[in-house]
Structure formats: structure tokens, C-alpha cells
Design a protein around this nucleic acid. Structure first.
Lengths: 168, 168
DNA sequence: TTGTCTGCAAACACTTTGCACTTTT
DNA sequence: AAAAGTGCAAAGTGTTTGCAGACAA
């Protein structure tokens, strides 16, 4: 899945590697650094695309024995990584999709309903709008999520392809 | 569930009642106007809050025989109402939540993670941002959805209440 | 009458959980 | 050794589907 790569340099600027950060997070709360957790963070860190639990599981199954993890462990570890601030979770078409959140600037998405591609973008004005609205309602903002749904350039060109059902 | 009611007057300005609009929609495509479909549109139209399938089902069960509908029929009819432009669907905490979309201006939401209340707001600037971003990516916008997550005034006041788990 | 709709039960996709065993600390 | 983690199988959610009988047109 294609992803805007303009942000990759930022990652380099991060002090700890995702794996280090995760281990620190685990140790800080008496959790253990297991083979499975290492395998999962490393695998996730090695790729920059959006992914879901099932994809990750399939990827790991494709690797050699000793680098795998069961479905429950994958789900449990993804949840921990979200807690550790390594991943962000969003729900799309009924299943959870994850993206990197460590060393990446906050951003939102354009979502193509035909090919299901996610295109990242960020907007300072958007944050201002959220703050202004929140202030008006005396609401304390923790985060926001904007998804702009439509059709991407590629799919506008090749309109032959049958449209996938919108299940937003 | 409390909802900003600033929009209610707009509803009055609508030409057809939700029920009429739905029947028109059904007839236009050879679908039938059944007792269940009538019961469901009427019930939904009689209330202005956000709701999910399970709530609607429970509400109908509380009414007298002859005004009920089975779970599959409720789900099927909600999907049709979305198709008819009567309802908008959004996914929150893992289940579909519906709100009126007929005669209501487009808006977005503040979502309180403590009491799970949805507060509506609308912003012209937001639409401009979406358009600008889309133009930059040659993306054709069909819709957008912004959810600002945080804590509402009421919950900020009564902080005693244990925080519900964030499952956005 | 004819074809759609309904309700039931069963199937679904995705995710979580109970528990005996394994591993890290 | 003690505590936490793993994998399996099973259980959950919320939602959808196959089908026989019910009903609108």
C-alpha cells in the first residue's frame, strides 16, 4: 500500500528505536521482553505502511519458525504498542488499521473508496479549527481524526474498476 | 443522549417527511412499503438523537405488537435508509451509530470519551481545508468525517466518574 | 399471482478470553 | 521459584445471510 514518504526523515531524528522504546515501556511496568514481542515490534518497525492484525499475522507466518506469533499474541501486542505510543489505531471498513505514531508527525487521511488506499496529509489549520470549536464548547481535546473519503487520482483515471462498497 | 438542537428548524423546511421520502425511494426501485419499514422510519423520525441498531431494536420491542421488527429487518432497513439519504452512519467504539441526514445540515462531532456523548458542530473552514487538501492530491471528495475526541464540560466538572476505556 | 420481505437460525468477521503450559526475570 | 506471557480452543460482539413461509403490489 502506497504511503506518503515525506515523513521518513523525521523517524531518523528519534532518540530511541521503536524496539528500544517498546522495551523501555515494558520494563517500566514490569512486563517482560519476550521473543514474540521483539519479533512483532521489529517487523512493524521495518515497514512503514498501514496494516491490520490479519496482515501482520500473515506476514509473520511467512517468516521462519521462531519469528512467529499466534493471533492472540499479535492482538495483545498491538494493543500494547498503541499504549506505548508506537502505533495509532483507526477503524476502517469494520476492522482496526494501524500506523506508526512514533517519530511521525500527526496527520490525517484521504481515503479512497475504490482502492482503499490511505493518503496522509497534515494541516495546521485543522488543529486550529478543533481548538476553536472545543473552546466554544468548553471541551478538552485529546485528539482528533479526520478522514476525507472520495476517489484518488489513480482510480479517477481507471474508472473501469468496479467500485467497492462504502462501509465507512 | 443530548444533541445540539439548533438544527431542528431546518427539518421543518424540508419538502417531504422522512416517511414520504423513504416510500418514494422504495417505490422508485421496485421495493415494497411494508409495515416494518414504516414502523422503523416513523420511529427513527420521531427522535432526533444518535442511536445504534440495538437501541432501536430495544425501543421497538417496548412498543405494542404490530409495531415491532426483527433484528435482521432493523439492520436491513437502516442500511436502506442510509442509501435513501435519510440517515448517516458512523462507527464509534466498534458499533455503527446513526444520525439524521435528511433536512439536517452537515456537521461534525466532539466525542466525550467519558460519557460517550456526541456534540455536533459545523465549520465552513473545515470544508475549505478538505477541498484544499483534496485539490493538492487531485482527489475527488465525496464526504469527510471529523471526530474530535476528549472530555466534555460536564465530565470535566464531575471527575469522580471512572474513565471509560478509549477504543476509538 | 408474483416477486419481494420477513423472521428464524445459522453463519460471519474480527477480536477477546479462560486456562494449562512455557518463558522471562 | 515466582510471575507474567503464550497458544489453543472457545467465547464474544455486532452484523449479515440462506431459506421457507408471509405479504405487498
Amino acid at each position: 500500500m502506497a504511503v506518503a514518504s515525506d515523513f521518513s526523515l523525521v523517524t531518523v531524528a528519534t532518540a530511541l528505536s521503536p524496539r528500544e522504546r517498546f522495551e523501555e515501556f515494558l520494563q517500566a511496568r514490569g512486563k517482560r521482553v519476550t521473543r514474540q514481542r521483539r519479533v512483532i515490534v521489529d517487523h512493524v518497525a521495518s515497514r512503514h505502511e498501514h496494516f491490520d492484525a490479519e496482515q501482520l499475522l500473515a506476514d509473520l507466518r511467512g517468516t521462519r519458525e521462531g519469528e512467529r506469533a499466534s493471533r492472540p499474541t499479535v492482538y495483545r501486542t498491538l494493543a500494547e504498542m498503541v499504549g506505548a505510543g508506537l502505533l495509532r489505531k483507526m477503524v476502517l471498513d469494520g476492522r482496526a488499521v494501524y500506523e506508526h505514531d512514533y517519530g511521525y508527525p500527526r496527520h490525517d487521511h484521504l481515503y479512497c473508496t475504490r482502492c482503499r488506499k490511505l493518503i496522509e496529509f497534515s494541516s495546521d489549520d485543522l488543529a486550529k479549527i478543533c481548538d476553536a470549536v472545543a473552546a466554544r464548547h468548553q471541551f478538552r481535546v485529546e485528539s482528533h481524526r479526520l478522514i476525507v473519503t472520495g476517489v484518488c487520482v489513480d482510480c479517477r483515471a481507471s474508472r473501469s474498476r468496479s467500485r467497492l462498497q462504502d462501509r465507512v
